[in-house]
Design a protein around this nucleic acid. Structure first.
Length: 376
DNA sequence: AACTCGGGGAG
DNA sequence: CTCCCAGAGTT
């Protein structure tokens, strides 16, 4: 159905805008008009809560205050500043896109939908957010908040996980934007979704548009939006080796860098293997598996000594159950035959405790190291 | 349309 | 526990 057929559109937009201007939060990125700053905030905010982003936003812009600064930075440093924030391709894409802006657009963030949408990591939501917030262009910025709010107020019962529903939402959201108020209105929608029209137990009693909310009238605000349930993460059992060096590597731990592509690309980690469910259930068998596979796959000759710790970590689609074993190198001189593994997808290196700040680790390994170093 | 890609906070 | 968050890219 055409967007113009939805009732109470003007009422909805005006009341929401007034509500926003009455009490909007003082967020760091709202203190800047720099399109680059807005851009950084929007990328960080993808699938990430406001409170989580704030400290990262400050650190990132302190180190990379301009497009030039980010474009010139070593990639490892960008990744390190992103450590713990997740979805690390965002960081790589952002730097790649910033370099593109420098080369192709003279360092000025483009202000047209066609140009900005070509930038890596800038999809339908982020392009609309930058265009509206930084340039006040009347483009919709439809995120999870906006879909929830629109689904409820206008009683849209389509599954919001379907791409077609997003198109409907974008058209409707575009038709709602009051003349000359795109930036504030789009932020009003998201702020409203975050603070009032929340996913669970929405605050209808304080809602500024409750009187004409279709879902509220039907008593169905708790049933909307319709969203198909995600598949549960598949379990993976992993065995990791905490290998302490001796001799010239005394006091150091062997770490490795993950491949360029895929999960946790280019981040550092403890050497570990994936084993079948049910395999290595006893520590004895697990240690044999670990020894055999590290030797076979990585030419890494270790002697597992004892169970060290246990860690679990859930990604969106995978659940890691990781058992860590304290290991020694098998070679008598403690130097793994002198050389670290080569001809594997990984890059190995010895790391002293004080060198952790030079490497970006997935959070599960940050936790493991913190615990290990606490034990001494 | 279905997967891949992190991590954490709230209830 | 479950849900989902100012999503994007790939197949």
């Amino acid at each position: 159905m055409p967007s113009s057929d939805y009732p109470h559109r003007e009422y909805f937009a005006e009341r929401l805008l007034a509500w926003y201007r009455r009490g909007k939060r003082d967020l760091p990125w709202r203190r800047s008009r720099d399109p680059y700053h807005i851009w950084v905030s929007e990328v960080m905010l993808q699938q990430t809560r406001v409170e989580t982003v704030i400290p990262y936003y400050h650190r990132f812009l302190e180190r990379f205050p301009t497009i030039d600064a980010l474009a010139a930075a070593p990639e490892e440093e960008v990744l390190k500043l992103w450590e713990g924030l997740g979805y690390y391709s965002r960081a790589r894409n952002l730097q790649s896109a910033v370099r593109e802006v420098k080369e192709r657009y003279g360092g000025v963030v483009p202000d047209t939908k066609e140009d900005i949408a070509t930038l890596k990591g800038v999809g339908p939501y982020t392009s609309g957010a930058i265009l509206s917030i930084a340039y006040n262009k009347p483009e919709p910025a439809v995120d999870g908040n906006v879909m929830r709010v629109l689904a409820r107020f206008f009683l849209i019962e389509e599954d919001i996980m379907k791409p077609g529903t997003r198109t409907v939402m974008e058209k409707l959201a575009r038709s709602l934007i009051p003349d000359g108020e795109a930036g504030d209105f789009n932020q009003a929608l998201m702020e409203f979704g975050a603070l009032v029209c929340s996913p669970r137990s929405p605050q209808c009693l304080t809602c500024p548009v409750m009187e004409r909310c279709a879902a509220r009238h039907e008593g169905r605000e708790d049933d909307l939006p319709v969203k198909k349930k995600a598949k549960p993460p598949r379990p993976e059992r992993r065995l990791a080796a905490f290998i302490e060096g001796s001799g010239e590597h005394a006091g150091k731990v062997l770490i490795r860098q993950r491949p360029q592509e895929g999960l946790l690309a280019r981040m550092w980690e403890l050497p570990h293997i994936l084993v079948e469910q049910g395999a290595g259930t006893t520590d004895d068998e697990a240690m044999r598996l670990l020894q055999g596979r590290l030797l076979q796959d990585e030419t890494l000759d270790v002697l597992p000594q004892e169970p060290f710790m246990h860690a679990e970590h859930t990604f969106s689609h995978i659940h890691w159950d990781m058992q860590v074993y304290r290991c020694r190198l098998a070679s008598a001189d403690g130097k793994t035959g002198g050389a670290l593994p080569e001809l594997t997808p990984f890059h190995y290196r010895w790391m002293g405790h004080e060198e952790m700040e030079q490497y970006a680790f997935p959070n599960v390994f940050v936790r493991i190291f913190r615990e290990a170093f606490k034990q001494g």
